[in-house]
Computed example of a mutant assay.
Amino acid sequence: MSPRPYSSPARQADAQRTRDAILDATARLLPRRGYTRTTMKDIADEAGVSVQSVHLAGTKAALLIAAFERTFAGDDGPHSLTERPAMIEIISRPDADDAMGGWLDYVAHANRATAGLIRAMTVAAETDDLAAASIRDLGTRRRADLGRAAGWLIERGLLDPGEREQATDELNHLVGPETYAFFVTTSGWTDARYRAWLDAALRGLLARSGPRRA
């Protein structure tokens, strides 16, 4: 039997710091230089690690997707947004208006932080099957998260249960990075104007789809 590789908490922490540095470098470089122009050596130089370390961390497409996850939600795991500590705190707030405001603040900040990465992912998906599949997976997971958000609105008495599916689709459009890109990147809106629009759009959705009155 060959010996098992030695692992320790210190070594694991070291490996995680290296991975975090690589993902942060990816998040900085790809929006600035573009997906096709950025090399693994560029990422290694930006992160201050060896090129071998970057290759061991994953392909360029895999690093891009992981960098998006880390920038959007704080880590690069595939688990639901509703399981992340920041979101748990927001949806646990007793006041519904405060919770919705916190959720929209989170979404607006995350969309602003990841706008460049979304553009890079779109380019990557044109030539890289992994990137294209990962983007589809992100879309599936995002809709599932927004289905949970619709369920939360139903539990709070803000949404009619019969409107759950349509509300999920509307929420998906409302908070999606594509909508942010249209208003802020393409149309030149400020982030403050976009955030105000989010609030008005969510309230409009709830006014149309709130609980039916007898």
Rank of each mutant, 00 (worst) to 15 (best):
D45H: 02
L56H: 10
R93P: 00
D75T: 10
A25R: 09
A21L: 07
M87K: 03
A113N: 14
T36G: 09
I118T: 05
A62C: 04
S53M: 07
L63Y: 06
Y106H: 12
A66E: 11
E69Q: 12
P31H: 04
V54Y: 15
R93H: 12
A27M: 05
Q52G: 14
D98H: 11
T26H: 02
G77S: 15
H109Y: 11
Q52W: 09
H109D: 10
R37D: 13
A67R: 10
Y106M: 07
V51E: 15
A67E: 08
F68R: 04
T114C: 11
D95W: 01
D95L: 01
E69C: 03
G74K: 08
A110I: 10
R70A: 15
L64G: 02
D76N: 15
K41T: 15
E89F: 06
S92Y: 02
V54D: 14
Y106C: 01
F68E: 04
G34S: 05
Q52F: 10
Y35Q: 03
T38S: 11
L104D: 05
M121V: 04
D98I: 14
L29K: 01
P94K: 08
S53T: 08
P94R: 12
R93D: 11
D24S: 09
A61W: 07
D42E: 10
T38I: 10
D75A: 10
